[in-house]
Amino acid sequence: MDTTDKQIEHLAKLSDFSLSEKDSKSLGKDLESIINYISQLDELDTKDVEPTYQVFEMENVWRDDEIIPQEASREDLLALTKEQEDNQIKIPKVL
C-alpha cells in the first residue's frame, strides 16, 4: 500500500509530533516500506486462530488493599518536573 501525505499527517497527529515538511517526507518514505513489509502477513491464513496477547501462564494476579509507603515521595517526584507551584505541576493554560 502507498502512504499518502494525509496518512502521515494523521499518524503524526496520533503520535503528537510536529513534523517538518522534510521529516514527513523522509519518514513517510520509510513508513511506506515498513508497512509494505509487514503487509506480507496478509498471505498467512489465521482463520479460527485465537490471538495471543501475552506469553505468561498466570492469571488473577493482584494485591491486597493496604496502604504502604512508596519508593518515592511527592517531593522526589515533583522535583523532576520543569515547573511547579503549590505542589502541583505547572503547564501552559489548558483551553
Binding site: R63, D65, E66, I67, I68, Q70, E71, A72, R74, L77, L78, D86, N87, Q88, I89
Partner: peptide
Amino acid sequence: STKTKLFSEVDNDARGKEPNSCVSPVDYAL
C-alpha cells in the same frame, strides 16, 4: 471506595488532602 488506588498502594481518599499527596511513582507514570 477502596482503601487504595486501582494500580498502587496509595490512599484512595484524597478529600481534604494536599495536591499530589496521594500519588505513587506508578500514578506519576515514571
